[in-house]
């Protein structure tokens, strides 16, 4: 409901769009219209331009480079829409609407946080880690994947420590990322994005040691701008729109079990 919205709807040139891990793609766009405005945790609606698939897809920003006027989206092919995205060739234009959402609550971070990402929830956390490092607070980063890890090198340049877990043991600890996150009391907050089960586990853990936990949520979206009331989460007993009020919430304010 904010009136100071500065979202833009425009065609951006695809500079590159390639597979960086199995079913994970990285798309870099020339988007000087927004590159300087993107905040960590915000996302774009990506328009597919396909008659049978009407709805734009919400994809988080993994990076933004104001100097070069570029933004980067890292996404997983999970269905027909993201498959169509993966097939978009470099050199062509794609329409996007961005930036959307509130982003992570980084202003309040004054001491080392734990950044925890799971799977395709990892990309938006890179921008958060970068922003924190830029203000002199290098986070400890915990990343969990089913198998292939992504963005580890990028996190290593801005994190104090990077801890990896994979379910199949192919990289780092064999098991869940939550098993690596001990001594949570050392951290001011947990900043997280990933599957619902991970976010719920982090919410419970953060509550048990009495530290704040911010979670970035995803949901099926229609419009992306707040009009369709399609993407909701229960917050203090009422449904609020994830695109307009989130996607980042304080974990203790929302019901992560639907």
């Amino acid at each position: 409901m904010s009136t100071d919205v500065t979202q833009k709807f425009f065609a951006a040139k695809i500079l590159s769009n390639s597979e960086v891990a199995s079913d994970i793609f990285s798309m870099t766009l020339h988007a000087p219209e927004i590159a300087g405005d993107v905040k960590p945790g915000q996302f774009a609606m990506v328009y597919l331009g396909r008659g049978e698939m009407l709805l734009p897809r919400p994809i988080s920003f993994c990076d933004a480079n104001p100097a070069e006027g570029t933004v980067n989206l890292v996404y997983q092919v999970v269905g027909k829409g993201t498959k169509a995205m993966a097939e978009m060739p470099a050199g062509e234009n794609v329409k996007i609407l961005a930036p959307i959402g509130n982003g992570f609550f980084l202003d309040r971070i004054t001491a080392t946080p734990a950044i925890v990402g799971g799977g395709i929830g990892t990309p938006p956390l890179l921008l958060a880690a970068k922003a924190l490092a830029a203000k002199g607070i290098k986070p400890d980063v915990f990343l969990g994947f089913r198998s292939n890890s992504i963005l580890v090198k990028e996190f290593e340049t801005v994190a104090r420590n990077v801890y990896i877990a994979t379910e199949d043991g192919s990289h780092g600890h064999k098991g869940y990322v939550t098993e690596l996150l001990k001594n949570g009391n050392n951290y001011q907050e947990i900043i997280s994005c990933g599957p619902a089960a991970l976010l719920q586990a982090l919410k419970t853990y953060a509550a048990s040691i009495n530290i704040p936990c911010q979670v970035s949520l995803e949901e099926r979206m229609g419009c992306g701008v707040g009009t369709c009331v399609g993407c909701v989460v229960k917050m203090y007993g009422t449904f609020v729109r994830i695109c307009a009020h989130g996607p980042v919430f304080d974990a203790n304010e929302v019901d992560l079990n639907g």
Partner: peptide
């Protein structure tokens, strides 16, 4: 309103249960 998910894309259309 109804519990999520409230939106489902279909071929050339969209279902909603807001």
């Amino acid at each position: 309103g109804n519990p999520p998910p409230r939106i489902a894309e279909t071929h050339g259309g969209m279902l909603n249960a807001v």
